[in-house]
Each structure stands twice: as C-alpha cells, then as structure tokens.
Amino acid sequence: MPLKQTPPEDAKNRYLKDKKHSVTRKTLYNYDTTLAQFCEWLDDRNIADLRDLDSDHLQQFRESRLSDVATITARNDMVTVRGFIEFCETIQAVPRGLSELVRIPKTDESDEICDDLLTREESKKILEHLGKFEYASDRHVIFLILWKTGMRLSGLRALDVSDFDEVRPALEIRHRPETGTPLKKKAKGERDVLIEKDDGRVVADYIENARPAVADGYGREPLIATDHGRRARTTIQRMVYTATRPCHYENACPFDEEPETCEAATWNGASQCPGSVSPHALRRGYVTAARNAGQPKDVTGERVNMSGRVLSKHYDKGTHDEKAERRRSHLRDI
C-alpha cells in the first residue's frame, strides 16, 4: 500500500486529536510538548514529508535528546515518539515496522529516582512565615494543603468549595473529567483526606475572606480560585516556588545573591532559585516526614493515593538512620 504525503505537524495534530479522549489533559500536554520538539527538529533538517523519515533520523533525534536532557527525560521522549510513529503507520504516513526501530534509552534505578524534597523543618518555617504574614491567602492555603496532605496538584485543582467538610474537617477528592478536573488515577484516586482542626480553620477563613466569589465555566465553585475561575497549574506551581525560596521565609539568601539583582527573586524566575522546590517535592517531603513520624506505610499510601512499591522507591527519602529508627519499636531481643 503506497505511503501518503504527510507533513509532520499535520500528523502530530491528528495524533493528539486521536489521544484526546483516552489520556488526561496533562499527559496530552506532555505529548504535545515532546512532539513539537520532534517536529521542529525535523524541520531544521528539511524533512517536510514523513515519507522521508527513516531509522537513522530517529537515532539522530535520540542522540540529540540524550546530549541535551537527563537520561530519564530522553527515555520518556522516545517512548512518546515511538507511540507517534506507530500512529503514523496506521495512517500510511511511514512504512510499517518503523516504530520497532525506535530505540528507547535504558535507565538504571538511580536515573528514575528524584531526591528533590522539602524537609519537615523547612516546611515548618515556611508555614510559620505564611501564617504570620500571609494568613489564609492563596499561597498560604495552597502550600498548607499540599504539605499537610501530600496530594497531587491535580487533586488540589479538582477541589471545589463543597468538597471541604469543615466539621470533620476533611477534603473530598473526586474525579470529574467531564467538567475539567480529571484525577491521575481517575476514579481510583477518589478519597476523603482528613486534616487537623487548625488547618481546617485556615481553609475556612480563606473561603470566608480571601477566595473570590466565582464559578468556573461548568458552574462549579473551585476551592483554589481567581477572579476568572479555577486557578491554573502554572500559577500554583509558581506560588510554591516563591513560597519555598529561602529569601522569602527567612529574609536571607544562603546563596549570597542580592534580591535587587537576583533573577530568582522575581515572580517568573522563582523556579531558578537553588533553594526553591516544585509542588511534587512537597508530596515527596510529606511521605518522608509521615514515615519518620511513625505513620504506617499503608496508611500513608492510601492517604496520598500511592502504591507501597512506588512509595518506597520514589517518595520515601528517609536516611538509613531514620529508617533504622522507624524499626526500633518493632524490634525484639531474640
């Protein structure tokens, strides 16, 4: 069967449209980002028709990614490219079997594990600062919920005002893909997360005094809101980056930078600070702190919606000494 003339960008758009209803919006965004890089790379080499694509080009792109990014990132990129090429085979844009020639970089366990986390001591300082100077603000409530519950960013964004039960108090996380807030594990990610009464009071004060009286495009009242509706992921990420900069909560820079000239001291540049962390580092820090405090692995896993294997491998960053201390109360002299 003859191949059809297909520009890479056209094939990319068809692939994303095909995937739109079977993956989360975040995953679709990741696909789009990776394939945009791939299409740009092809354009730089004057490949305007996928019929001209061959296995050597795929190998060159693989080598290019390995030289520019971490091995685990290159691996994820090539997995995405392979899926794209498989789709291109079905629309007769590339020869059958080309996807089998996409070589996926191998990674070892150390490549797959990220050690970026916020410690309990750091989080206490940040919460003290926010509680004193930014009480019940957007940034205070966002940081408080992410640290005290270990929930994913998608879980935080999915919360509506009605999902906050002030009596227990608790946050009720629900999967609502039809109205714009899917959970990573879909219905399996649904759960109620209990919080302390003092933390519940902060959330209640935020709703009462700081949260805009607004609904989103589906008529829902998002808990974390702007004047225009549900707060965007990128803005939440920046709020965490700004809150975790040491100069923000300690009024001093451990990296000897001057706030007036430091690029990381700006709203958009906060992620460049060596001391700031992403929302996921709070999730990792919560798991580690909870385990060090004696919270059982299964309880912690159910609370953050995570399997025991993933928790142990990727999230529990306790030191050898801390893990030994956790076992102390279970030891018997035999």
Rank of each mutant, 00 (worst) to 15 (best):
G219R: 11
R220D: 13
E221C: 11
E221L: 07
P222T: 13
P222V: 12
L223P: 05
A225S: 13
T226Y: 05
H228R: 15
H228C: 08
G229Y: 08
A232D: 15
A232Q: 15
R233W: 08
R233T: 15
T234L: 10
T234C: 14
T235F: 07
T235A: 14
I236L: 12
I236M: 07
V240K: 11
Y241M: 14
R245I: 08
R245M: 12
P246L: 06
P246F: 05
E250H: 06
N251F: 13
N251C: 10
N251H: 14
A252E: 08
C253T: 11
C253A: 04
C253E: 05
C253L: 06
P254A: 03
P254T: 05
P254H: 00
F255N: 11
D256R: 12
D256E: 07
E260S: 12
E263V: 14
E263C: 00
E263M: 07
A265D: 12
W267S: 04
W267K: 06
W267R: 10
N268T: 09
G269H: 05
A270K: 01
S271V: 06
S271M: 07
C273W: 06
C273N: 03
P274H: 06
P274M: 07
G275D: 01
S278F: 00
S278I: 04
S278P: 02
P279S: 01
P279T: 06
A281W: 00
A281H: 03
L282N: 03
L282A: 06
L282K: 07
R284K: 15
Y286W: 09
Y286P: 06
V287H: 03
T288C: 02
A289L: 04
A289G: 06
A290L: 03
A290K: 01
R291D: 01
N292M: 10
N292D: 13
N292E: 11
A293H: 04
Q295V: 12
P296H: 01
K297N: 05
K297G: 13
D298R: 11
D298E: 14
V299P: 05
T300D: 00
R303E: 11
V304S: 02
V304R: 04
N305T: 10
M306W: 03
G308N: 12
R309H: 12
V310M: 15
V310W: 09
V310E: 09
L311W: 01
S312E: 15
S312P: 00
K313A: 13
K313R: 14
K313F: 02
H314P: 09
H314R: 14
H314N: 12
H314M: 09
H314V: 13
D316Y: 01
K317D: 11
K317Q: 15
T319N: 03
H320V: 15
H320S: 14
D321Q: 15
D321V: 13
D321I: 04
D321N: 08
E322S: 09
K323A: 01
A324F: 05
A324M: 11
A324W: 02
